[in-house]
């Protein structure tokens, strides 16, 4: 069970990935196609990563805690996570001021419309993906 163009067994690589902060993993998407694929698409890995990072309770902020100093129920502001700042201008257009953050957990922010209508949205603040 070896990775193409590398002699490291896949399970050894996984052990390593599980111990890296999200910021390093995003940078290491550039290492090779295989790494990019594992980091982007392996959902089992993503879930395991979150639980391992929590379990090891590392001394530096990882996917959380997310600091949300400025979010209020009425307005959207920028928020920062692990050194990554998401600005108001980077939110997708379809998210308007009616949305509020209702949950924070597992490295994701969950938004819902304050009047109950519309879809519930999930955001991965590290990836700026909605």
């Amino acid at each position: 069970m070896e990775v193409a163009n590398s002699s490291i067994p896949v399970d050894v690589l996984y052990h390593n990935f599980l111990r890296l902060p999200a910021k390093s993993l995003l940078r290491f998407r550039c290492v090779s196609k295989f790494w990019c694929n594992v980091i982007d698409h392996d959902l089992t890995f993503a879930n395991k990563h979150v639980s391992t990072r929590v379990a090891t309770a590392s001394d530096e902020p990882q996917t959380f805690p997310i600091s949300l100093p400025e979010i209020t129920p009425t307005a959207w502001h920028s928020f920062a996570c692990d050194g990554n700042l998401i600005k108001r201008s980077e939110y997708p257009n379809y998210i308007d001021q009616g949305y509020v953050v209702c949950q924070v957990g597992y490295g994701l922010l969950c938004f819902r419309h304050k009047y109950g209508g519309g879809d519930t949205l999930l955001c991965n603040p590290l990836r700026k993906k909605f």
Binding site: N5, S7, I8, F28, C30, V31, S32
Partner: peptide
């Protein structure tokens, strides 16, 4: 570390 360092560390070839 940089991406280049990590490639050298694991002996990985850049295929991008």
């Amino acid at each position: 570390k940089s991406v280049e360092y990590v490639r050298a560390f694991f002996g990985i070839e850049n295929d991008f």
